[in-house]
Design a binder for these strands. Structure first.
Lengths: 375, 375
DNA sequence: CTGTTAGCGCCTTCAA
DNA sequence: TTGAAGGCGCTAACAG
């Protein structure tokens, strides 16, 4: 039996040394991962046989195979993925491009996507753009340079030109959009039914007796904003409530501006009795400002958000909002993406998966007995 | 390593077909990244010359160089990092191991680290363990298999055995711990002064007149928990307040158990008049339960959290908590880590960087006029 | 069943 | 200033 030992000096370069063999060998561990060559040399057989044994090829004498596998385990051999990548021209890496990492939404999507990717042996490279177009472009270049096998994208609020993403299409690298999608590209998308969710959210306000419902709308560039706006409009129309331009505020998702808009709205001669905010952070910030103005929620004004983000349950009153299956979005997008890799581009189908949402009703629209709803 | 500028054609479709040359060539874009070989063949010169020109080696006739660079730009040549990795035995990838991705803390740390890594041309591979030991071990194996050049680690709450991390040390792959560090490993660490921060947080409670201060303490395995506990104890001692075992609740960071503990505490014959929670999510959940019990914050019981997480400013009342420089933690850890890469292990120094914290006082400890403090 | 050879894309001697 | 050859670690095709 051979005997291997590690030197215990943490400060010094750890030496991987073998004693007692016919040819005592010493691997400087730093910069020397065990290779097939090492195993072949040690057992005095050819590299190809070692490779075959390690890859499970049947044509290896069981005796030889056993010796190889044993030694490999002993030496803690790990196949160098770089060479594989070089051969297959694949990186086994998926890029994920998101606009931000501050709210819990995108991190959670990434977690879902990650788990799916891991199952298939893929790694995930995440980049966030701070909702900045130039950064997004730079990030996608990095993805390209890293030869990602596919990308999952949610665009920044500034992105109007999609050339940096079309490059991927051209190179045959599959793209899947999620959440904030690009309408002009015919690629798979994972979304929720923003229109429908918004419609129901606003209808909920109407049915609870509100007549003047304001909307803090997101940037028009984002399909997601347009759809939510349309849902808002159609819900009002359906219930014969006039859509007033005064009450629809276009806004760029910059939270620091919410205060201005809310003060403006509440200062109107005929202020709104409800607010539908394009997302939860906006809704939450609105609530803060409204409370600062000394108004009561939901008595003076009801609030509905969108996203069921972290915090929307413990703010007071609890925020009525649209829940979306966050992890599921990540998983679905990744599954779609992995399905496209290694497939001929001719077979790509621009499917759009629409996941279900659910309106979660809390104290910001309906006065509740408890300080807030149970979880 | 030399830098190579890429073409900036955003608007035009970079076409991988060149017309008008003596041998018009067209590359099937799918699965055919432009290589040095392509350029050499096209210009009818040797591959080595092309390589030299692209890497900025001076010994290339300026005429030849120009032709090469031009064609490279035209064809949008991008050096294949895999071959470089194969040669240098480096992946230009840093692994980051975190316990969770739900609260904003770790995502923000990752963003900070990412930015630093990108500057140095490194990519970042993130894995989260869901605070599960087995997952953490599996994730580190993935890091290893991917030949990361270094790892940044914050351990899970279950991790008591560090063999999976010591492997990196042995292989000469640098490690830097942050936030939740491992005391028994002599490697660089980035932390905040948990003891000091806890001390001041508790002292703040004492100075505001509280006498019976409870503590929901984190798992003893985590140094971070022990330090916060010690800060708590010493602050009490300093002010001649007896430390009562009844008021120190050991808890495993599982939020669903908070309710039990709070009910227990508030049901005591002599209930606490203040609570120091080991982190913000715990503090926030405690506030929820306390409000459910019909008690007032801060009149009946004051609350202090730790972390200044997302949400601690808009919960009501605002949560007094310890702010930590989140992005800075990521940046610092990454800088330390990058400094170790390519250095001889003998030169590694187990420095510990301690970043400054700040106690943010809000309505959960001091009654405030406004619904909550301004941002 | 096993060994030899070639090649993935790139860089780096060595030679011209 | 340029070209040819070798090698990074691995797999696959082709011989034995």
């Amino acid at each position: 039996m051979q005997h291997w030992e590690y030197s215990q000096y943490y400060g010094n370069a750890p030496i991987y040394a073998r004693t007692g063999g016919k040819n005592p060998i010493a691997y400087d561990v730093k910069n020397h991962q065990i290779t097939i060559k090492d195993i072949a040399r040690e057992l005095n057989i050819s590299k190809s046989t070692v490779s075959r044994a390690l890859t499970g090829h049947p044509s290896v004498k069981s005796e030889t195979r056993k010796a190889i596998l044993e030694l490999a385990e002993q030496l803690d051999y790990q196949r160098n993925m770089m060479s594989i990548s070089l051969i297959t021209n694949k990186s086994y890496t998926i890029g994920i491009v998101v606009p931000e990492f501050i709210t819990s939404f995108f991190p959670q999507v990434v977690v879902g996507a990650q788990e799916e990717a891991a199952k298939a042996g893929y790694n995930v490279l995440v980049s966030q753009s701070n909702d900045d177009y130039a950064t997004e472009v730079a990030n996608t270049k990095v993805m390209l340079a890293n030869r990602v096998d596919g990308i999952m994208v949610s665009i920044s609020k500034e992105t109007r030109n999609f050339d940096h993403l079309k490059i991927f299409q051209r190179k045959g690298i599959p793209i899947v959009f999620f959440n904030r999608v690009c309408d002009e590209m015919a690629v798979p998308k994972v979304v929720i039914d923003d229109y429908d969710a918004a419609y129901h959210a606003v209808e909920h306000l109407v049915l609870s007796g509100r007549k003047r419902i304001a909307h803090l709308a997101g940037p028009e560039v984002l399909a997601i904003s347009r759809k939510r706006l349309n849902g808002y409009i159609d819900a009002l129309k359906k219930h014969q409530i006039p859509v007033s331009d005064d009450l629809v505020i276009p806004y760029d998702l910059n939270l620091s501006k919410v205060k201005i808009y809310i003060k403006h709205l509440m200062g109107l001669e005929n202020p709104p009795d409800a607010l539908f905010a394009v997302n939860d952070p906006t809704a939450i910030e609105s609530m803060r400002v409204i409370k600062e103005l000394g108004l009561r929620i939901p008595e003076d004004i009801a609030i509905v958000g969108f996203g069921n983000n972290y915090g929307s349950d413990f703010i007071e009153p609890g925020l009525t909002t649209v829940n979306q299956p966050v992890k599921e979005i990540g998983k679905t997008a990744m599954t779609l993406l992995l399905g496209l890799i290694d497939k001929d581009t001719a077979q790509w189908r621009a499917v759009t998966k629409t996941l279900d949402t659910e309106l979660i009703i809390r104290g910001s629209t309906i006065k509740q007995e408890l300080p807030q709803s149970k979880r």
